Simulated assay, not measured.
Amino acid sequence: MGRGSESFQKRQREKNKRERAAAKQARRHGKLEVPFEEEVEAPSSNGKSEAELYEDFRLLSEKYQSGGMDEETYEQRRAEIFEQLGLEVH
């Protein structure tokens, strides 16, 4: 049953990512009246704002650097946060 939830969450993240990209493009072309600052503070699909997600990443990085987490777990959680932020993971 967990698999279905993961698939839904992935589809939701992808949908949010496409919507943010469309809003960004519309903003660039002057078709959107919402200022960028208001969009940044909008909650993501999991209810956290962009600022909260960046804070989560900072804490995750600190824990990894201090040796409190293995590399595989760090990379997985980092990828999840980046996806929620709409960033590409390399």
Rank of each mutant, 00 (worst) to 15 (best):
Q84Y: 07
E71C: 08
K63P: 07
S45H: 09
D56F: 02
E41L: 11
R28N: 14
A21I: 09
G30Q: 03
D56C: 10
E50A: 12
R18P: 03
R11C: 06
K15L: 15
Q9T: 05
E6Y: 05
K48F: 12
G30R: 02
E14Q: 15
N46E: 09
Y54V: 06
E19M: 11
L87I: 08
S7E: 10
A26I: 03
E88Y: 03
E71G: 07
E37P: 00
E72P: 00
A42Q: 15
F82G: 08
A22Y: 07
L85K: 02
K17R: 14
L53D: 06
Q76R: 15
K17C: 02
K15V: 03
N16M: 10
D70G: 09
E80H: 02
R58F: 10
K10H: 06
G47M: 02
F8I: 04
Y64P: 01
R13M: 06
N46T: 11
E52D: 11
L32W: 02
E50W: 08
K17I: 04
R3H: 04
L53H: 08
F36T: 09
Q65M: 13
L59Y: 08
K15T: 08
E83R: 12
L87G: 04
E38S: 07
S7H: 04
S45D: 14
Q65T: 10
Q76S: 14
K48C: 03
S44R: 11
F82C: 14
A26N: 06
A79K: 14
Q25Y: 04
V89Y: 12
R3K: 06
D56V: 00
R13I: 01
R3L: 00
E19K: 12
V40G: 01
V40D: 11
R18K: 11
N16C: 05
K48I: 05
P43E: 11
A26Q: 11
M69V: 07
